[in-house]
């Protein structure tokens, strides 16, 4: 308990520090002024969410290969945390878009593909609720998780190829792109803080899932008696 509480406190501190840095340390952007500060959360959450889904993909592969319950628990933990991150991204995006572009939503490549990604992982969680038998549920949802993760870059490519308003990548986006050094430091600090948060949440959710699996076994034994 002590370790987990300490980890939680560290995460809360890091998130607070990231909020402080993005409001007070990062310089004001020229065209969007204070509005641009949502970037430190919007983009950093998307990065952290992608990390969660990637860990989930690896866990799904490991489950199919090794058939150990812990990989199933990790898979669902990552999918849920990743989905939560992308829900935040889909909410903060329109908040930023309305004053910046004049509209809440546009059918642009990154918005649309993020939404499709969100739908894919909602389907993944829905699939899990619709299969009773635990081993079957673990295997089939792991396989769907693998297909969904493979699909993400293809969806992104397809939509990007044919239709686009979202700003071109600012970080690692090619010549002419790039952030002010202080902005960049604040951004990467936000990314770090959100990754810590995501890892903390995945760990908590993973423990919960393992407890649930244990409870399920006990319940079945009790029913058998």
């Amino acid at each position: 308990m002590g370790k987990r509480a300490l980890a939680g406190a560290v995460v809360v501190f890091l998130m607070g520090a990231a909020a402080y840095a993005s409001f007070y340390i990062a310089p004001e952007e020229k065209t969007m002024h204070v509005l641009q500060r949502i970037f430190y959360f919007h983009a950093a959450t998307a990065w952290a969410g992608m990390t969660a889904l990637f860990i989930g993909f690896v866990a799904n592969l490991l489950y199919v290969w090794r058939r150990e319950g812990k990989w199933d628990a990790l898979g669902v933990a990552c999918a849920e945390v990743g989905l939560a991150c992308f829900t935040v991204v889909l909410i903060t995006g329109p908040i930023w878009a309305k004053p910046a572009w004049g509209i809440y939503w546009t059918w642009d490549a990154r918005l649309t593909s993020t939404f499709i990604l969100w739908l894919l992982y909602v389907s993944y969680l829905l699939l899990r609720t619709l299969i009773e038998e635990p081993d079957r549920r673990a295997l089939l949802s792991a396989l769907f998780g693998i297909f969904a993760f493979i699909d993400v870059p293809i969806v992104f490519g397809a939509i990007r190829w044919w239709r686009t308003q979202h700003p071109a990548p600012v970080i690692m986006g090619g010549p002419g792109s790039g952030l002010d050094p202080t902005m960049s430091k604040v951004f990467f600090f936000s990314v770090f803080a959100l990754h810590c948060l995501v890892v903390f949440l995945i760990n908590e959710r993973y423990r919960l899932e393992k407890l649930r699996a244990k409870f399920e076994i006990v319940r079945r034994e009790a029913e058998a008696i």
Partner: peptide, 25 residues
Amino acid sequence: ISAQARMRELLLPLLMLPLLTPILV
């Protein structure tokens, strides 16, 4: 996958349609 789940008639479109977006586009 969906043949082994409950509500399979609704589940298949839900799994399939987002996954097949690239084909549609």
